[in-house]
Design a protein around this nucleic acid. Structure first.
Lengths: 201, 201, 201, 201
DNA sequence: CATGAATGAGCTTTCATTCAT
DNA sequence: TATGAATGAAAGCTCATTCAT
């Protein structure tokens, strides 16, 4: 087994990479620790050296997905130019990001299902969406302040924008052929931006 | 144990009621057949007499949820009056219906997660959303034909309407305190109806 | 596998017989549930149907050993005649009983070791010895009351009698060739009876 | 980590001290090598450098306990004066020694249990008790020879004296509140000394 | 139809031991 | 000598499913 000494960070990465691969194909429950062991090329003991349980691995994956999403969001928000352009960029990049994750998406739905029963996961998801919502609201408010948009409730618009996008992902997961993620997301966004300009809300 | 002679249909109903209760609280995987046995008040053998496996029960629950949703959709669509009013009614009733299900909603997310790996479940979900989308598109088209709405791509609007609503449900499941399902859904709908009238899309 | 339906009591007996056999040869810790499964001729599931854990089996064995000992003690005490004769009978029968258990004796020492850490086992052992001591004291007191013995502290004598016997068992377990359980126990008893008659204590 | 250069003997002592502490609290089986590692302040590798296995540590502890006991016994026997006084001293010191060990006592019972299955441990225990018995017999014989005691079988008396004391320890371990080790041991000893003087046996 | 004891493959986790550094 | 990451064989327990009654 290819195992020499490696930095702890690299080992954790190695394990989480393997775990995401396995979980994406089998789901959290059908996936056995042995699958992660095999996929990672490490030993059972090594996995448990770095993560104290299967649940800990799942939690770490949640963290990882979120930090990537936050990264993407921050990158986009730190740009300049008209807010509507930046929103278009955000949607475009999010769509592409989502498409690139593809097999990890079902994991997210497992998380939503788990959220109902696992305090810890629920809290993590709540924090994630709360942050996302407030950052998006701030961006929209920027547009309102600059006169680009009519005076609207930025927080409400942020909420329905996120809902729109998350809903599209859901429909896309169910039937990828019937939803063109990027195109349909942009189409929804256009409606939203138009309403922001005209001030319906 | 409640074991009078009962009609097969009633027995199945009894089992599915118990199963939904159990699945809602524990999730598909943590729930054991013994939990369903206990909740239903029947015996292990009786459960297996009516359903050949745990998966068969899960599939039957999916069917049940969908047929209830279709029922609700059809009721709403068969009304008369301005399309926008009927859309508002639809959203209102859907929101209330969703709120009343409350504990079953996490089950839906388990289904979305399963969809990625289970042909049968994926197909069932696809059929459900395809039907929903086409019926909603027909309703919107009605509004276009009657001149109530500007000429738009009814199918696209149907898609983003459904996405909006499903996305809101997701956010509501994650953090019920931050989303007022009915109000926020109506708020999104207003934006959509407005754009339908003005013809942006 | 010889398994048809059997009465629950018979099944439990079957399992405990197997467990004692296995524990006696391997000790509580080295013995695996699979050993009990094999020895009992039942399946893993059957074992767990009747006992919820390995510890539960151990506890049940403790109970079984104790109830057998109490049985033997009661039989002896309910006899008539001079107390010293009955004490001799008691020691004789206890010695023979111990010899017949032979392989179960090491189990007792595991219990003494466990007692330090397991509340439940400690309590069971305490109750057992407290009962034994009080019954024996009552018997000795009978001899005092009838004038067969000098007035002594019956409880103290009971304690040292039990200690004598238990200590001999210990030494016999360690080195069976150097201790003739019955003979040496009777020898110690004679010293005790003599002191009871003369009233030294 | 305490890792100055130390003499091998001191390292072994350090490890055995830690091991006894850990074993006393957790028992041989529940105690993990990692517990000893932590308690000792050394590293895993260091432990295995000085002891080839967990069993080797257990064996070393047995040795240590025995050599301490022999030490105590020899100290007592090398005194002068009436044998009965020296026996009283022996019991007093043994009782105090036992009380001071307190938490290590359950270890002894683990050894008795192990003895049934482990040749090596059985032999060690046999040697220990044989030595103890013969030394004690010699002491008693001294009393017989000097006319302090009646002519008795010194070896038999030695055996029942040891049994008495070990049995008391057992009962004390099980229920410390019901046995006053020193007092009750002296009480038993008095009976024995009395019978030695009068010559009952 | 109904029962529930019985089955046994499969799972997560533990931990004594090894060995490259 | 000393370190601690890595190994992997167990082990206890679960639970969907079966089937004699």
């Amino acid at each position: 087994m290819g195992t020499k000494k490696e930095s702890p960070e690299r080992r954790k990465t190695q394990i989480l990479d393997a775990a995401m691969e396995v979980f994406a194909h089998l789901g959290f429950h059908k996936a056995r620790m042995d699958d992660i062991v095999q996929e990672s090329g490490l030993s059972k003991g090594a996995i448990y050296w770095y993560f104290k349980s299967k649940d800990a691995i799942i939690a770490a994956i949640l963290d990882r997905i979120f930090s990537r999403e936050h990264q993407a969001l921050n990158d986009t928000l730190s740009q300049t130019g008209p807010v509507s352009d930046r929103l278009v960029n955000l949607v475009r990049q999010s769509a592409q990001h989502t498409l690139s994750l593809e097999f990890s998406i079902p994991l997210m739905f497992e998380f939503y299902a788990l959220a109902a029963r696992h305090e810890q996961i629920r809290t993590a998801l709540q924090r994630y969406y709360a942050t996302y919502r407030s950052k998006l609201a701030r961006l929209i408010q920027e547009g309102v302040d600059s006169g680009e948009f009519a005076p609207v409730d930025a927080d409400k618009v942020a909420l329905s924008s996120i809902a729109s996008f998350e809903g599209l992902i859901l429909l896309w997961v169910v039937d990828p052929e019937k939803v063109t993620l990027e195109e349909d997301a942009l189409s929804s966004l256009r409606t939203i931006i138009d309403s922001l300009r005209r001030g319906v809300d």
